[in-house]
Design a protein around this nucleic acid. Structure first.
Length: 266
DNA sequence: GCCCAGGACTATG
DNA sequence: CATAGTCATGGG
């Protein structure tokens, strides 16, 4: 979904239904945005603000983090890391479905096949860049092709079903934003086949950036808590809640940092 | 060969 | 409401 180089990242998004390829570089604590192909639009800058959570002051989180006996190292090792969001609700949900109960390496592999087959493509300097498939494209996908990409029959049904829900306008970011509270948003999401509480919370955390809506029970999260000896038993629900209480308001950031801690060290 | 993987659904007590 | 069985397949 994006290409990372030595000192840049490139990504395609749809702005007014037209693909735009942009590049971001860092220069003296500023981000330099360059449109490589397509039409410039405020949508691009807005997307980047949302994607990187640019407008948030994360110093309160760092105060909590650096005062924590087991996690203080993160404020140095991961200095400045922001919660990378998934601004597109449809993409966030699909990514959850793809990743459910399979290892991440395999999940990325199948997602890549999906994107390269049904996504919108831009070719720039011989390189191929893709935007995530639209609900329409995925709704029209051939189940046999999806099967060949190693999606299970269940996941094919979920993905195409959700694509149709979006295509028919029965679910959208706007619909979620107009609901009164998080409980109502969770309910609206889990009413859709294939979306359980884990997917609902992950999505609300990554797309709407609701700090308290985190995927409790997530395999990676539990592993992160175990690795840092914050809990000794994955069923220690009370221990997990007590830990998150200390980081009230920054729960989602904590989850993101714990996931980060599990990634291979460079 | 075995266990686990950034779960969800359905059936059953 | 809580638990068990099922799906499905790669990665370590």
């Amino acid at each position: 979904m994006h290409t990372v180089g030595e000192d840049y990242v490139r990504k395609v998004i749809l702005a007014d239904n037209q693909p735009v390829l942009f590049e971001i570089r860092e220069n003296n604590n500023n981000l330099i945005i360059k449109i490589l192909q397509g039409k410039d639009s405020p949508v691009v800058e807005n997307f980047i603000h949302d994607w990187f959570d640019i407008d948030r002051d994360i110093t309160p989180f760092y105060q909590l983090l650096s005062a924590h006996e087991k996690l203080a190292y993160m404020s140095r090792d991961f200095e400045g890391l922001r919660l990378i969001g998934i601004p597109d609700l449809f993409e966030a949900i699909c990514w959850c479905i793809i990743g459910q109960q399979i290892n991440l390496t395999f999940a990325y592999k199948t997602k890549r096949r999906l994107v390269e087959r049904y996504g919108t493509k831009i070719i720039y300097e011989g390189q191929h860049y893709y935007a995530f498939p639209s609900p329409e494209a995925l709704a029209a996908a051939n189940p046999e092709e999806l099967k060949a990409m190693q999606f299970s029959a269940q996941k094919i049904a979920y993905l195409t079903g959700i694509a149709n829900v979006f295509k028919e306008g029965k679910m959208s970011k706007e619909i979620l934003l107009n609901l009164p509270d998080v409980a109502a948003q969770q309910k609206a999401l889990t009413a859709i086949k294939g979306i359980g509480i884990w997917t609902a919370n992950y999505t609300l955390m990554k797309t709407l950036r609701i700090p308290t809506s985190i995927p409790y029970g997530d395999a990676g999260l539990l592993n992160g808590l175990m690795a840092h000896r914050i809990i000794r038993d994955k069923k220690d629900i009370e221990g997990i809640h007590a830990f998150f209480r200390y980081f009230a308001g920054w729960e989602s950031y904590l989850v993101f940092y714990l996931w980060r801690s599990l990634a291979p060290r460079i």
